[in-house]
């Protein structure tokens, strides 16, 4: 029987915070556990087989947090699994009532808005990079050697595709947060 499950790009496949939380919960119900979240967890996650458990996971993106952030959550019984990028992942075992960290509309939309803001920063970076490369190609192509030009075209296409994907993600989360507050 398999005792390890390796998942790639989990956070990129589930960009909506709720989706990511529910996915981790489903994995835990099937007995797949992750004990520590690290910076590279959004790219690769290793789950180990154990007893099926009912856990509630919380995805909380915060660029800056004061030092009582961790202690406040811990007081409420949340277990800190770690941080990937600026996302803090929390876990709590439960029986009947599913625990919530965000209990009003304001804080749910707040969390989702912080996620959109983070995505839009990367969106802008990729968009600017794509535009800069396109400008270089159009106006200075004569000065660029043939091999470099092909590389530049590939890179610019790559950045454009990333910018489009991130743009879609922004709209998707934005729509999702509107629906959940209705």
């Amino acid at each position: 029987m398999r005792t390890k499950k390796i998942v790639f790009f989990s956070a990129f496949k589930r960009v909506i915070p709720e989706d990511f939380e529910n996915w981790l919960e489903k994995m835990a119900l099937e007995g797949w556990h992750i004990e520590r979240i690290r910076q590279w967890s959004s790219i690769i996650m290793i789950f180990r087989k154990g007893e099926p458990k009912k856990y509630r996971f919380v995805y909380d993106l915060r660029a800056v947090a004061s030092k009582d952030y961790i202690s406040t959550y811990k007081q409420f019984g949340w277990q800190f699994l770690g941080q990937m990028a600026s996302v803090n992942i929390w876990r709590m075992e439960y029986k009947d009532d599913r625990p919530e960290a965000f209990t009003d509309k304001d804080s749910v939309t707040g969390r989702n808005n912080r996620t959109v803001a983070a995505v839009s920063i990367s969106f802008s970076i990729f968009l600017i990079a794509a535009i800069a490369m396109a400008v270089a190609l159009i106006f200075f192509s004569s000065g660029i050697p043939e091999s470099d030009r092909i590389q530049l075209i590939i890179a610019s296409v790559f950045f454009t595709v990333l910018a489009v994907i991130l743009g879609c993600v922004m709209i998707y989360i934005h729509k999702g947060s509107k629906q959940s507050t209705r």
Binding site: T72, Q75, P99
Partner: peptide, 28 residues
């Protein structure tokens, strides 16, 4: 403190409102 606020609120609302850790942290 944060946890005390949650207990107090739960108590005076007859368990109608349970404030979550994230919500309390944001609000404070």
């Amino acid at each position: 403190h944060g946890y005390g606020i949650m207990l107090h609120t739960k108590n005076i609302t007859n368990k109608r409102i349970t404030l979550g850790a994230g919500t309390i942290y944001n609000s404070l």
